[in-house]
Simulated assay, not measured.
Amino acid sequence: MDPELEAFIPFFPKADLVDLVAARESLSKLAAAVPAPDLSDMEVEDRMVPAEPDVPVRIYRPHRAQGALVWMHGGGWVMGDVDTEHPWAARLAESSGAVVVSVGYRLAPEHRFPAALDDAYAVLAWTAEHSAELGVDPERIAVGGHSAGGGLATGLALRSRDEQGPSIRFQLLNQPGLDDRQETWSARHFTDTPWMTRDKVTAAWGHYLGGAPASPYAAPARATDLSGLPPAYIATAELCPNRDEDIAYAVRLLQSGVSVELHQWAGTFHGSQALLSAEVSQRQIAELGAVLRRALAG
């Protein structure tokens, strides 16, 4: 493990996903402790996107933005909102120059699949329809997310392709959760890794699916046809249960004719980019912004 990250391990909370009230409170406290990003060069606005029910979003609008990113937060489909995602969504907007639409999708187990995906799809459609209001090119809209949010963004790209929905320029996927089967080497062996373990992944999928069979829109690794999808950037953490399913998905995209940039971050663990004092975390966050800027400008 990267020594800068390893130094934080004794202070990491041991929260599981059994007591969701405690887990949600813990995530809120962790997010509140992250230093505030620079908002001086952008407008930030909370909106409700019309849907059934309406979806809360927080819009980060840098000056002279070219494109937009519909961004889904992490949290195992059971935690998080636009407030806990604020430090990261704002940094993405700042570093990429893109309008970031952070989605406050409904959480499981109160709202199981497909509620979160339906919310994300409604926001994607709204962003495309309101591109002129947002000041962006409707052909320069990306989707992305971290962890569970990355899985949602991946499912969103599949659904939009299949339903001839809004045009998606790019997928920005950071350590996405893609496969409920947990059959890969990393999913089977990473039982005591920091922050995310096999048991936590199992619990998250259980809350999200509620025992129902997983469709490719819920678990994109199950999709049999990956052709015609947008280009993608996929980042993985070395000590993360999701690692091998993400790498396998990247290879399958390449074999389907989809352009992919894959970055396996050595010595990192799931969510460790939140430890901003570590040099490797700073590089991870900077790369997400740089990749998005290039994808939307090219």
Rank of each mutant, 00 (worst) to 15 (best):
P220S: 01
A223G: 05
P213Y: 12
L253I: 15
D192E: 13
G210C: 07
C240P: 01
D225T: 09
D180R: 03
S227F: 08
A250T: 11
I247L: 14
I234P: 01
R243Q: 09
T184D: 12
L254E: 14
L226R: 10
A203Y: 13
A218P: 09
P176Q: 09
T224M: 09
H189Y: 13
N242F: 15
A212G: 00
G177V: 10
Y208V: 02
S186H: 07
Y208N: 02
R198A: 12
T184V: 09
D180F: 00
E245Y: 09
P176E: 11
H207W: 09
A204R: 07
R181I: 03
A237Q: 05
F190D: 00
V201C: 08
Y233H: 13
A218Y: 12
G211C: 02
A219W: 06
A203R: 15
G228K: 01
R188G: 00
T193G: 10
L253S: 12
R243C: 00
A232V: 08
D192Q: 02
P230G: 02
H207V: 05
R188A: 08
H207A: 03
I234T: 05
P213M: 10
A219M: 07
L178I: 12
G211W: 11
T191L: 03
L253Q: 14
L209W: 13
L226S: 02
A214F: 13
E238C: 01
P241Q: 00
A223C: 05
C240Y: 13
R243F: 14
D192P: 00
D225E: 03
G177Q: 13
R198I: 03
E183M: 11
C240I: 01
S227P: 03
T191I: 12
L254G: 14
Y233V: 05
L253M: 15
P230R: 06
A218D: 02
A250E: 13
A204C: 04
A212Y: 04
G177K: 03
A248E: 15
A214P: 08
D225L: 02
W205Y: 05
G228M: 03
T184L: 07
T236A: 06
